[in-house]
Design a protein around this nucleic acid. Structure first.
Lengths: 191, 191
DNA sequence: GTCTATATGAAGATAGAC
DNA sequence: GTCTATCTTCATATAGAC
């Protein structure tokens, strides 16, 4: 989605700065004041672009999913084998090591927060998982045609989520590297 | 810790009702009004027992850890082999299936929430993990004396955390059962 | 010790001047 | 379209009557 006029540009700018803010503070501790300050837009103006905080969240999730799809599309083109593609996915926490050990997984931490008592919003957030899962299933289907691709995709996602939770809790980078190695070994064993 | 006088009894009662509340709503969405209502204590009275919300949290975590220690002590006495003890731990999510699929892991979800921008409180919450990890290390030490018990304990904890995150996100009970089976197979393979 | 009333601040959201 | 001033609500926290 390309921002056309000025309103669209500012709206897009708010979405992009709020993306980080949401990751760093979580949804419930992220206020409109925070959003306005981060985007450098006057406090009351945010309401011209978004009616409610829920609407901001939805827009940010949509933006994230667009980014993810573009990334996965690039991987599809540039990485030739499903095994290497799965390893590329697996290595996200290593590449994002600083952020993962500090703030956890952007998808997982948000889902966990919203799942308690904001399930409508959690359903929105969960679409991030869905996007990855669909792609992961395709890769597993290519890698092990006879396997249960749904379970395999879920399993891999689960491993990365558990690792992100503990990596953040203990600020432990070596745990990330170690567990990612295990996952790669497991992927190799499937071929 | 046994509640002696009436003040101690009420304080203890507040802690126990807040334990569930914290699990179901999370820390930042749990208000003093919620706490007072759940414990059936007049709103302002809570401040007679706890000066701040942080203090309530600390008391609840201490209570949880007491409970955990008692539970682990019972397991030590009643379950004879380290393998069976580790499987007993592993099966917590199956036994707590309704809660885990609805609210996630009480330790993990709290750690994730507090880890964003309340790291002092997160350090308090993390002691829950520490308590389990210490016990898990002991069991692995007995099971595989030559293994890296610290890594094994972390790995097992990580698996249960990942499973809780996804189980809650998708409200998926079969995922819990399936993944617990994998973990048990893995434990068996270590012997 | 117990409870009510209230102070204080920050949140989400809105009205309306420019 | 842009921004300020403000409304309302609800949060944590306190003062002080009983």
């Amino acid at each position: 989605m390309v921002a056309r006029n000025k309103t669209e540009q500012i709206r897009q700018h708010i979405i992009e700065t709020t993306d980080d803010l949401l990751y760093h503070k979580g949804f419930n501790l992220m206020s409109f004041s925070d959003i306005a300050a981060a985007a450098d837009v006057p406090r009351g103006n945010i309401y011209y672009y978004f009616k409610t905080k829920d609407e901001v969240l939805t827009a940010v999730i949509e933006y994230r999913i667009e980014q993810m799809r573009a990334m996965l599309e690039t991987w599809n083109e540039e990485i030739k084998t499903p095994l290497e593609r799965l390893k590329r996915y697996t290595n996200i926490p290593v590449i994002e090591l600083e952020d993962v050990t500090r703030y956890g997984c952007p998808m997982g931490s948000l889902n966990t927060e919203l799942g308690k008592s904001q399930r409508t919003l959690q359903a929105v957030s969960r679409k991030q998982y869905d996007t990855f899962l669909t792609w992961l299933k395709k890769q597993f289907k290519e890698l092990v045609p006879d396997g249960n691709t749904k379970h395999l995709a879920m399993h891999l996602l689960m491993l990365t989520q558990g690792l992100a939770v503990l990596a953040q809790s203990y600020q432990d980078k070596s745990l990330v590297r170690r567990e990612i190695n295990y996952i790669e070994t497991w992927l190799d064993s499937l071929v």
